[in-house]
């Protein structure tokens, strides 16, 4: 199978005299896949994201995006294919109004005006921000700005969207809305998705998880298997979701689940089936 993105033995450091931030990292993402990357602060997650669209170039190893090797000659095509949403809602809003901001990426790629008008409408609709087309950023909430950021990325019609802690500065409701928006969008358009996050509830929704530790891919697998390794995760300074902890406590008390529950719903199901078996 052709991987959509592939990291081949990538190592990276910011400067010659700095320590390596990524050490011999290899992994891949398929088309339409949702990959979550977790890891402690400074484990190299954002660095991976920046390498993926050529904001940084690796010292050793190779990165392929949709079959293209990422280098100086391909970065403009790569950036059309890979869209990125950053953490701070304010510092990625370039336009003076919502529609200007959504247009920014398209203007950079020289799209004709008629196409831009059509796509502004479509992408604002996709994130539920159509009514705010003429609003200035200071009249929007953080969550609304992040939705505009997603619309801006969608407008260029990328094949992969990276959310680098895009919900970190939002309240729980804002987070939920953004994740719903994203899931909706991913369902409607064929998109690969990478979410970099400290929010473990986001992680449980992903198809696959990569755990970074000290610049190395430390573990890789489906969320259920990853969370089953609670102790190991805690050793490298990562928290596990409440449900996972609860399940661990319960099995410690003699109520072993037959699978690793990922959310309240699953835990609830497990609990009552367990109960009915007793």
């Amino acid at each position: 199978m052709q991987h959509f993105i592939e990291f081949r033995n990538v190592s990276f450091r910011y400067r010659e005299d700095h320590p390596w931030v990524l050490k011999n990292v290899s992994f891949h993402i398929g088309s339409n896949e949702w990959l979550a990357i977790i890891g402690h602060n400074g484990s190299g997650k954002s660095t991976i994201a920046k390498l993926m669209n050529g904001l940084l170039l690796p010292q050793t190893g190779e990165i392929f995006v949709d079959g293209m090797p990422v280098n100086e000659n391909t970065i403009w095509d790569v950036r059309k294919t890979v869209g990125m949403v950053f953490q701070n809602p304010d510092n990625q809003f370039v336009g003076t109004t919502v529609r200007d901001d959504v247009a920014f990426g398209m203007e950079n790629h020289g799209l004709p005006r008629e196409v831009m008008l059509k796509r502004i409408e479509e992408s604002l609709q996709a994130v539920g921000m159509s009514e705010y087309e003429r609003h200035e950023p200071h009249r929007l909430s953080g969550g609304q700005k992040q939705r505009v950021a997603i619309a801006s990325v969608l407008a260029v019609s990328p094949e992969l969207i990276i959310l680098d802690e895009a919900t970190a500065m939002l309240d729980p409701r804002g987070r939920r809305e953004i994740m719903e928006t994203i899931r909706e969008v991913q369902r409607k358009r064929s998109l690969s998705l990478i979410t970099i996050t400290h929010d473990l509830n986001e992680v449980t929704q992903a198809d696959r998880v990569i755990v970074m530790n000290e610049g190395e891919t430390w573990m890789e697998g489906v969320p259920r298997d990853i969370f089953a390794q609670k102790d190991a995760l805690q050793d490298i300074g990562l928290d596990t979701p409440f449900v996972t902890k609860l399940a661990a406590e319960l099995s410690g008390a003699g109520l072993a689940m037959q699978r690793e529950p990922l959310n309240h719903q699953e835990l609830l199901e497990d609990l009552w089936t367990l109960h009915s078996k007793m």
């Binding site: 920046k50 669209n53 904001l55 403009w76 950036r79 059309k80 869209g83 990125m84 950053f86 701070n88 510092n91 990625q92 370039v94 920014f104 990426g105 950079n108 790629h109 801006s152 990325v153 260029v156």
Partner: peptide
């Protein structure tokens, strides 16, 4: 950060 975001969006 803005410069980074602009570059990421193909500026």
């Amino acid at each position: 950060e803005l410069a980074m975001a602009m570059e990421a969006r193909g500026y």
